[in-house]
């Protein structure tokens, strides 16, 4: 028993070390965000915060309004999540409930194209968006995720296992239309699976870099990742303290949100993987 405790002690020490490794880059970031450029350059590494936070903030905000990027990213990610969830549920319901001609073909087509890497159509997508006059708008970021094959696939599989046709029959006998049935019965049944997928959709959209990079031009429309990229080439990069602060602003709110949502997010990831 005693030996077991020593082993456990060592194991916990290793785990704590891993925690430190996971966290120390963020800690360096936060500390450096409060120091002046010359402090960072001259005094090197320290665990003690400095006093230049406001000064760094002023420098940063003078060139780049990161809060704006935050708002933009939030707008895009929320829109994408809602649209993608709703339309994927609709499509999954269509595939799961009805037997129509060509259904299998369409479903397989969707599955095959699910395997295609997102960058394959990038050049054509860019050209299409340009011709449509939609460059520098959010439409090319928000509308295409309506067609999310993986989400449809996942929801359809879920629906097949949990839904009894008798439920629908009962509703039809009550005189409900098909759309109403979807809203009244299909959607609520799928809700747990929709929520799981919504988290992935949101994180994916929030982190998306290459698409907004290619599509957006005006800095005031930049999403957060693109704004972070632009930070590097901007005057902010002259001041390491402000640079760290800029990164911190993009990171800390996510950390805080995660504090409250971690349990939910982790169980979603677990569910997403096992249901495969």
């Amino acid at each position: 028993m005693k030996k077991n405790n020593i082993v456990k002690g060592i194991l916990y020490a290793v785990l704590v070390l891993l925690v430190i490794i996971s966290f120390i880059p963020f800690y360096m970031m936060i500390v450096n965000a409060t120091r002046t450029n010359s402090e960072i350059l001259q005094q090197g590494f320290t665990l003690i915060p400095g006093t230049a936070l406001m000064q760094n903030y002023d420098t940063l905000i003078q060139y780049m309004n990161l809060w704006r990027g935050f708002a933009n990213s939030l707008f895009v990610a929320v829109s994408v999540t809602l649209l993608s969830s709703y339309f994927s549920a609709l499509t999954a319901f269509g595939f799961a409930v009805y037997k129509f001609k060509g259904k299998n073909f369409l479903f397989i087509l969707m599955l095959v194209l699910m395997m295609v890497p997102g960058q394959l159509g990038l050049i054509g997508f860019f050209d299409l968006v340009r011709v449509m006059g939609l460059l520098d708008t959010y439409i090319p970021l928000i509308i295409p995720p309506i067609a999310a094959p993986f989400v449809v696939f996942f929801l359809r599989q879920y629906l097949m296992t949990v839904m009894h046709p008798s439920l629908l029959e009962a509703a039809r006998i009550d005189g409900a239309g098909e759309i109403k049935i979807f809203h009244k019965i299909g959607l609520p049944i799928m809700m747990p699976a929709v929520a799981t997928m919504a988290i992935f959709t949101f994180i994916g959209s929030w982190n998306n870099y290459i698409l907004p990079l290619v599509v957006l031009f005006s800095p005031e429309k930049y999403t957060l990742p693109v704004m972070m990229g632009a930070l590097r080439g901007s005057q902010v990069a002259e001041n390491l303290g402000s640079m760290y602060l800029g990164i911190a602003i993009s990171v800390v709110p996510i950390m805080v949100a995660f504090l409250f949502l971690s349990k939910y997010i982790i169980s979603s990831i677990s569910a997403g993987a096992v249901k495969e």
């Binding site: 970031m29 870099y209 957060l224 990742p225 972070m228 930070l231 996510i254 971690s262």
Partner: peptide, 16 residues
Amino acid sequence: VFYLPNLITIASVALL
């Protein structure tokens, strides 16, 4: 804690 880095925008991670 171990999952946390995954949630951060890769752009921020790269810059950091």
